[in-house]
Design a protein around this nucleic acid. Structure first.
Lengths: 167, 167
DNA sequence: TTAAACTTTCAAAAAATATTGAAACTTAAT
DNA sequence: ATTAAGTTTCAATATTTTTTGAAAGTTTAA
């Protein structure tokens, strides 16, 4: 496998995996491209490389910046904008975990909490709803802590220790 | 909030969350419904409750069974098939983690490994591709171990201890 | 073996999502 | 103030995904 084959394989794999996790293909591919690019890339570079339109590129770059994993960069003396990705995969994971917690997990936890607090009335269906939403609430809470603390820990020593412990 | 409001809120939240994670709405909602139902439900019950077609119900139930989180049940003397969900959320998480590892993580790890093994040629772009895919490979490996071991641990004592430790 | 009860399949339709491209907008230099 | 270089927006279009519903299939009982 030569460089170009490997690069294409990586970019398309990343795109496919993204799709599976609810992230659109263009967004995942732009991210993959920036992640392995030693130099910042311009919008033109990205459009050219991935064969996507200007509008698509612009919108998805914005989203990646909203996620805090892609940054604008300016080359001195140049008007054009360049883009780089967060290169440290540990930091990348931390950022994604933090954002998914904020956008998805925390709101869900809130709703599970509300639902689990309805008035018990002794019927089987109410009992079951309360029981299950309580259990999910507790699990989501644990997951939230893990996502924000473990992944975000300094140099990730806890994770490493843990893996050694149970491997 | 009364029972029906709470039930609807739970089902629609679960559906929306599923969508965000690449799981279709009907599938997530069927699962939510079964999760809080004290009794097994027939296909008719599900169609009625969620207002979806027979074909849709049938296909999504099959997928849920493929994931190993919904089961067929037969009531004695009845021809109709009934369905229940795994009710233990710990076991549910274990099963989902196991399946996502098998279907998505393991194949990705394989490809990251292949890509990271290309011949170094001293160019910056090759060096970067190798470095980044190696880093992702290592991280995916760790995640895979955590998903299969930690979540699957007997009664989840490790997770609980860990959460106490770092909360 | 026939028929009734029920489930699955799958082509067509609908809905949701992603993409394009050109006009509108912004910024900086002359 | 004008223009040129570049970016963003968004209505229209294309693509993908989901859903429907009816025909085909299966199973059980008479």
């Amino acid at each position: 496998m030569n460089y170009d084959e490997a690069k294409n394989k990586f970019i398309s794999t990343w795109g496919a995996l993204g799709t599976l996790w609810g992230i659109n293909k263009a967004m995942a591919q732009i991210h993959a491209l920036l992640l392995i690019s030693p130099e910042p890339l311009s919008m033109e570079d990205i459009m050219e490389e991935l064969q996507i339109s200007r509008g698509n590129t612009s919108m998805n770059l914005r989203q990646l910046m909203d996620w805090g994993i892609v940054f604008k960069e300016n080359k001195m003396g140049e008007r054009k904008e360049y883009f780089t990705s967060e290169k440290d995969v540990q930091e990348l994971a931390r950022q994604i975990a933090k954002e998914r917690s904020r956008r998805e997990l925390k709101p869900t936890i809130k709703i599970l909490n509300d639902v689990s607090k309805i008035q018990e009335d002794g019927t089987a269906k109410t009992t079951e709803l309360i029981k299950q939403t309580k259990a999910l609430h507790e699990m989501a809470d644990t997951l939230d802590i893990l996502m924000n603390k473990v992944v975000g820990q300094d140099h990730n020593w806890i994770t490493k220790a843990l893996v050694k412990l149970i491997k």
